[in-house]
Design a protein around this nucleic acid. Structure first.
Ligand SMILES: NC(=O)c1ccc[n+]([C@@H]2O[C@H](COP(=O)([O-])OP(=O)(O)OC[C@H]3O[C@@H](n4cnc5c(N)ncnc54)[C@H](O)[C@@H]3O)[C@@H](O)[C@H]2O)c1
Ligand SMILES: NC(=O)c1ccc[n+]([C@@H]2O[C@H](COP(=O)([O-])OP(=O)(O)OC[C@H]3O[C@@H](n4cnc5c(N)ncnc54)[C@H](O)[C@@H]3O)[C@@H](O)[C@H]2O)c1
Lengths: 221, 221
DNA sequence: GGGATTTTGTTCTCGCGTTCACAAACTTCT
DNA sequence: AGAAGTTTGTGAACGCGAGAACAAAATCCC
């Protein structure tokens, strides 16, 4: 292992590893709730659905938090991963587009329990304003800038129709948001410093359908 | 290019490519709706948000559907990709767990427009039975087997709490479903012939939060 | 204390995916 | 018709990630 000071936070964690860390976090929480205090890489890998060698390699990017011959302390490891992920602090989030999906997201308790606090629900449609969803009132989209500044919001969620998504993204970036989770099926063009993550639900179904079709045509009995 | 008969459907399309084909499909639809009849790989790549070389290589796995010096016929290419993906036929789908997310999914028009037909909404809670969502009535989960056999359902969507997901998956597989889209934050154990695709919305937010934190700690001004 | 056992952390190798770069093929212009 | 210009399809180089394999380190047992 290379020497590093306690101040150095800039170790390069591969993107593929970062994407798995939340899965490990969740598996550790499940183990902890089940009363497990110590687990081996084999146990945790099984719970997370990955190869144990891959798990150990992933964890090695964070540091050496295990004990050879023993395994990992579940709560200690969970804390270390959470700290590395920024899950120990609270992240204020705004959701734009309170339709079918926006309602579901606003009601989703899994965000709150992982450190995401929905500070505002925004919609362009007057008729939605004033409605209270999960304890938060729906406000005009034009309030975005004020809310972002007031709460220091860095993360925005887009659940509007595709046609509106780019405009919403532009306004978000203009207001100071630097990370966007986009549910609209559109490619967003944003500046360099802005991260966009896209979730495309029908894409997932289409990939499944592709494999179904292959199964059907490959072995026509 | 290797010689192949018109009956051969078993060309190996890399998984990474399969995951992008739906994106190309959507980009082609957008272009077509905008009146574009022919486009270059550069145009399409821009619309899909990928590198043009990658796009051309992806398309080359399907065949040679472009014309050098000209580009691709938008509708023709769209049809070819749709055919390869199995998007030219209708896929019956069941959704299990009609809570917040289940309602949003049932109401989502994007599934229908991409060839997915929601033939049943199932829930274990009596109080939900009989409710009509998007024209489909919510029925008891115990009806699953009959519905799968009646409609020849191959694809199931799980939108139940995590604690119930494994049981639901087992029942689905027992009823004959071979592809599962899972929204519950759990690792599902299924047999070899069954494909599982997992969508974890809070994972996406957590990855964004990680990058936010890195931005904040890397350049503390 | 010391050997056997367990399990981590890391090195090494392999395969896949991405991207560059270019020849082949088609169109357009003269 | 031939030259110039475009754009595809693909060979080749490169980099990253997955997984096997092993050495180092801790525990257990006698
Ligand atoms: N419903 C689902 O399960 C689902 C699944 C996958 C993807 N999506 C995608 O998510 C998005 C939303 O889907 P939905 O079903 O909730 O649609 P919806 O029509 O129910 O809701 C969209 C909401 O966005 C608001 N809106 C429109 N333009 C706006 C703007 N410029 N600024 C702010 N708000 C605006 C509308 O007033 C409406 O309330 C769509 O892009 C859809 O493709 C939805
Ligand atoms: N709501 C969201 O936006 C959101 C976002 C991400 C992930 N999720 C995940 O999606 C799942 C559903 O979320 P939700 O917010 O809709 O929850 P919810 O509690 O609103 O709905 C769950 C539904 O599943 C039904 N159910 C429970 N056990 C069942 C069983 N064994 N068989 C059939 N039906 C059963 C319940 O009756 C209920 O109607 C959860 O796992 C959640 O973590 C939800």
């Amino acid at each position: 292992m290379t020497a590093r000071t306690s101040h150095e936070t800039a170790r390069e964690i591969p993107e593929a590893t970062v994407a798995r860390l939340p899965v490990y976090l969740r598996a550790l929480s499940t183990l902890s709730e089940g009363g497990t205090t110590v687990c081996s890489s084999e146990d945790l890998a099984a719970a997370a659905g990955v190869n144990s060698a891959k798990l150990r390699k992933d964890l090695s990017y964070l540091g050496s938090y295990g004990t050879r011959g023993v395994g990992y302390d579940v709560d200690y490891l969970r804390y270390q991963i959470a700290r590395e992920m920024g899950a120990t602090r609270d992240w204020p989030v705004v959701i734009v587009g309170i339709g079918n999906l926006g309602h579901a997201l606003a009601n989703y308790s899994g965000f709150r329990s992982r450190g995401f606090r929905v500070v505002a629900l925004l919609d362009a449609d007057d008729r939605r304003h004033g409605e209270v969803v999960a304890g938060v009132v729906v406000r005009p989209f034009t309030d975005l800038r004020a809310i972002v500044h007031e709460h220091g919001v860095a993360i925005g969620v887009i659940a509007t129709p595709a046609a509106a998504a780019q405009d919403v993204a532009d306004t978000m970036v203009g207001a100071g948001i630097t990370s966007i989770l986009n549910f609209a099926p559109t490619v967003l063009n944003v500046g360099l410093g802005v991260a966009v993550s896209k979730v495309d639900l029908s894409k997932e179904l289409q990939v499944l359908a592709y494999h179904e079709q292959r199964k059907a045509t490959a072995e026509p009995a």
